[in-house]
């Protein structure tokens, strides 16, 4: 564990808590894409399949449970909780996210580090996470103005993988033979997809107004 990875995990945790705070306290998911949340639930479900078979640390297992629990409960809230579901913008959240799942699965079957069931699904979760934010970014452009909580959520979610990239650079220089191109490229693509959001976020943030 290094400071970049810890910062990345805490940023990721913060993004999840901000979204849960918004949905649970003000019972609103306005501006939030259910499709992105569904993709993230699949990402965690396929990435943490080894949660019961390989123990890394209490921290690791705890965080996996938090991410699994929060992603599925957010999907549940947005789908089935009456008050929250009412604030879901179904007409605007129309990105065909299932079209992202198959290509990621095919790509994982073609490009992976080891051809085992767990490894292929783990690689699939990397590719899927890289594009999982697309429905949310499309929704963002359609709804123009979003509230601060949603803006913070997207900012933190985009930032965590950027911190992971710093973690990989650090590990590359400190651990011999630490080379994982698949993860590095997927992480880079994921972070670059947020580039224009970050641009507008900082413009608005510096301007002191909401994210538009």
């Amino acid at each position: 564990m290094n400071i970049f990875r810890l910062a990345g995990d805490m940023t990721h945790l913060a993004s999840v808590l901000v979204l849960l705070l918004k949905i649970h306290t003000i019972k609103s998911c306005a501006g939030v894409s259910l499709r992105t949340q569904e993709l993230y639930a699949i990402v965690f479900a396929t990435r943490y399949l080894d949660i019961f078979t390989s123990f890394v640390s209490v921290y690791n297992t705890f965080m996996k449970l938090v991410f699994l629990g929060s992603s599925f409960s957010i999907v549940w809230y947005m789908r089935y909780h009456k008050a929250v579901h009412r604030t879901y913008d179904r007409e605007q959240d129309t990105f065909r996210h299932w079209f992202l799942v198959l290509p990621c699965l095919v790509l994982a079957l073609l490009i992976h580090e080891k051809f085992t069931f767990l490894e292929v699904l783990w690689t699939f979760s990397l590719y899927l996470e890289a594009v999982a934010i697309l429905p949310q970014l499309v929704l963002l452009q359609r709804t123009r103005n979003i509230d601060n909580l949603t803006g913070q959520y997207i900012f933190l979610l985009g930032g965590y993988r950027g911190l992971y990239i710093l973690n990989w650079i650090y590990r590359y220089f400190t651990e011999p033979h630490f080379v994982h191109w698949i993860t590095w490229i997927a992480g880079l693509v994921q972070t670059l997809l947020y580039a224009d959001f970050f641009y507008y976020y900082f413009l608005r943030f510096i301007g002191g107004r909401g994210v538009e």
């Binding site: 390989s54 690791n60 996996k64 011999p176 080379v179």
Partner: peptide
């Protein structure tokens, strides 16, 4: 060379 792993990451 000992292959490093990413499975200790989230």
């Amino acid at each position: 060379p000992t292959s490093t792993t990413l499975k200790d990451e989230l």
